[in-house]
Amino acid sequence: MLKNYYTGFEGYPEIDFYTYINGEKTGIEMWEGYFDSIMNELSPVDGRWVSLAYYYHLYEGWHDESPWVIPDNKKALEQFETIDIKILDNVTQEVMMKLIKLLKDNLDNEIFIECS
């Protein structure tokens, strides 16, 4: 089952993070603005973008190929965990926590990002 953070934003870009558990698609559907708010809180590492921020800032990955498999769930999780969640608004905090949980619970599973 997908947790929906897209309702009310129909007609705007949507980003889905999901995996399959026992054949069932599970993850998060969100308005692109929530994802942009999260990604804008990431900082370069040693002057370079890494992990998901690399693909985000170069408009590669899920921008080119959707659905797209996150290449390294552990690195994506570590990157998200660097964000000070208190600076995000309440809904974006909730989305952030759901993303972290999805990654933690599925480190060894393929996690897809899909744009629509």
Results as ranks from 00 to 15, higher is better:
Trp49Met: 05
Gly47Arg: 02
Lys86Pro: 01
Thr82Arg: 12
Glu78Gly: 09
Ala76Glu: 07
Lys74Glu: 13
Glu81Ala: 10
Tyr59Asn: 13
Arg48Ser: 14
Lys86Gln: 11
Trp62Gln: 04
Lys86Ala: 09
Asp64Lys: 11
Gly61Cys: 02
Ile83Ala: 03
Phe80Glu: 06
Trp68Gln: 06
Ala76Phe: 07
Gln79His: 03
Tyr54Phe: 07
Pro71Val: 00
Ile85Ala: 10
Arg48Asp: 13
Ala76Asn: 08
Pro67Asp: 10
Ser66Val: 07
Trp49Cys: 03
Glu65Lys: 14
Gly47Val: 14
Tyr56Asp: 03
Asp84Arg: 13
Val69Cys: 10
Pro71Thr: 03
Ile70Asn: 10
Tyr59Val: 00
Lys86Arg: 10
Thr82Gly: 07
Val50Gln: 12
Ala76Ile: 02
Tyr54Gly: 02
His63Gly: 02
Asp89Lys: 08
Leu77Ser: 04
Ala76Tyr: 07
Ser66Leu: 05
Glu81Gln: 14
Ile83Met: 04
Leu52Arg: 09
Asp89Pro: 03
Thr82Trp: 09
Gly61Pro: 02
Tyr59Asp: 12
Gln79Arg: 04
Leu52His: 09
Glu65Gln: 13
Val69Ala: 11
Ile70Ser: 07
Thr82Met: 12
Trp62Thr: 03
Phe80Ala: 12
Thr82Tyr: 08
Leu58Tyr: 15
Leu77Met: 08
Trp62Ser: 06
Glu65Cys: 10
Leu77Cys: 06
Asp64Ser: 11
Leu88Asp: 05
Ala53Met: 09
Ile70Lys: 13
Gly61Gln: 12
Leu77Lys: 04
Pro71Cys: 00
Phe80Asn: 08
Arg48Cys: 12
Glu78Asn: 14
Val69Lys: 15
Asp84Glu: 15
Asp89Trp: 13
Lys86Trp: 10
Trp68Ala: 02
Tyr55Asp: 12
Ser66Tyr: 05
Tyr55Ile: 00
Asp72Phe: 02
Gly61Val: 00
Leu88Glu: 05
Gly47Pro: 04
Leu77Val: 08
Pro71Gln: 13
Lys86Tyr: 14
Pro71Asp: 13
Lys74Cys: 08
Ser51Cys: 09
Ala76Trp: 08
Gln79Asp: 08
Ile83Ser: 03
Leu52Met: 15
Trp62Glu: 07
Gln79Val: 07
Val50Asn: 06
Lys75Val: 00
Asp84Val: 12
His63Arg: 11
Leu77Tyr: 03
Gly61Arg: 08
Leu58Arg: 15
Trp62Leu: 01
Gln79Ser: 11
Pro71Arg: 12
Tyr56Gly: 01
Asn73Trp: 02
Leu52Ala: 10
Ser66Gly: 09
Glu65Met: 08
Pro71Met: 01
Lys74Ala: 12
Leu52Pro: 11
Asp72Tyr: 10
Asn73Leu: 02
Glu60Gln: 15
Glu65Ala: 05
Leu88Thr: 04
His63Phe: 15
Glu81Ser: 12
Trp49Arg: 05
Ser66Glu: 06
Glu65Phe: 13
Ile83Phe: 07
Glu60Trp: 13
Leu88Arg: 05
Ile85Tyr: 11
Val50Pro: 01
Asn73Arg: 05
His57Thr: 07
Trp68Glu: 04
Gln79Thr: 08
Ile87Ala: 09
Tyr55Pro: 01
Ser66Asp: 05
Tyr59Leu: 00
Glu78Ala: 15
His63Val: 04
Leu77Asn: 00
Asp72Ser: 10
Tyr59Lys: 15
